[in-house]
């Protein structure tokens, strides 16, 4: 699914990265806790979160998320968006809650980037 299709599906606003809407996204990771993103998210996945502070951009840069999708209609503050511009990470915002967002994306074929935690070795995302 492309970012453009994701934006359409979720009626999302594109806040940063309008020129990257052709990026193909296959996996997603949803979290409100940034350590979880660091522990489990895979490169290329889209980060879905209810947080809006600049952390989310730094984390996305660290794990190489393809984009950030902010839920619950939140619009990140200017400093977050400025950092996203600087680090070249697209940011979208949807009014849907995390549950609905996950459900719609999952129904459209996006899968979780970790399906199952089998043991300590499978937790290492690297």
């Amino acid at each position: 699914m492309t970012l453009r299709e994701i934006a359409e599906l979720l009626d999302a606003k594109i806040l940063v990265g309008g020129d990257h809407l052709g990026i193909e996204v296959k996996t997603a990771f949803s979290a409100d806790l940034m350590s979880d993103v660091l522990a489990f998210a895979k490169p290329g996945s889209i980060m879905i979160t209810g947080l809006t502070n600049p952390q989310i951009v730094r984390i996305a840069s660290i794990v190489d998320n393809s984009a950030i999708l902010v839920v619950r209609g939140k619009i990140p503050p200017r400093e977050t968006l400025a950092l996203a511009e600087e680090l070249d990470i697209p940011v979208l915002s949807t009014k849907y809650i995390l549950f609905e967002t996950s459900g719609r994306l999952y129904a459209s074929g996006i899968v979780g980037c970790v399906r199952k935690i089998e043991g300590p070795e499978s937790i290492v995302p690297l």
Partner: peptide, 17 residues
């Protein structure tokens, strides 16, 4: 569940809709 939040929310959503 051992599934991630995204995955389990996705599946529950599918059962609800």
């Amino acid at each position: 569940t051992e599934l991630s939040g995204f995955e389990i929310a996705g599946r529950i959503y599918g059962l609800l809709h």
